[in-house]
Amino acid sequence: MLDLSSDAFERLVVDELDRLPDEMIDGLDNVVFVVEDRAEDGSLDLLGLYDGWALTERERYGVGELPDRIILYREAHLAVCDDEEELRDEVHTTLVHEIAHFYGIDDERLHELGWA
């Protein structure tokens, strides 16, 4: 298992966010990015999670809503990667995957596009 501190992992996530196309990031509204060690169930099976209302469902979205969250799980990423280059690729893929959920793209379509 790759070893990387929480601070170093967060810096890597920020780096990968900065590398994403502006068109992908500019449309994000009321979304925060969060790094947690593991999913709530304690497993290492989940790399990321979109917790919120997809843009396609925001007609039910009210004023004063708490921000949606895109969560990346540090220990799960470290468990599946052998080196930092692989980790960067996996974080990039996870970010794109979870941001796609914000835009209303489901797992089936992401799989068709090669992002799941």
Results as ranks from 00 to 15, higher is better:
14 V>Y: 11
15 D>W: 05
16 E>S: 09
16 E>N: 11
16 E>A: 06
17 L>D: 09
18 D>I: 00
18 D>T: 14
18 D>Q: 10
19 R>G: 10
19 R>Q: 09
19 R>W: 00
19 R>S: 12
20 L>N: 03
20 L>F: 02
21 P>S: 06
22 D>Y: 13
22 D>L: 03
23 E>P: 00
23 E>C: 03
23 E>V: 06
24 M>H: 04
24 M>A: 10
25 I>Y: 08
25 I>N: 05
26 D>T: 09
27 G>Y: 08
27 G>L: 04
28 L>F: 12
29 D>A: 08
29 D>R: 13
29 D>S: 11
30 N>P: 07
30 N>I: 06
30 N>M: 03
31 V>E: 01
31 V>T: 02
34 V>G: 06
35 V>M: 00
35 V>R: 05
35 V>A: 04
35 V>T: 12
37 D>P: 01
37 D>K: 00
38 R>K: 12
38 R>F: 00
39 A>S: 14
39 A>L: 00
40 E>P: 09
40 E>N: 05
42 G>M: 15
44 L>Y: 09
45 D>C: 08
45 D>V: 05
45 D>W: 09
46 L>D: 01
46 L>E: 06
48 G>I: 01
49 L>A: 08
49 L>H: 10
49 L>P: 00
49 L>E: 12
49 L>F: 05
50 Y>G: 08
50 Y>M: 03
51 D>Y: 09
51 D>F: 04
52 G>P: 10
52 G>I: 14
53 W>I: 12
53 W>R: 13
53 W>H: 12
54 A>Y: 00
56 T>E: 10
56 T>F: 01
56 T>Q: 07
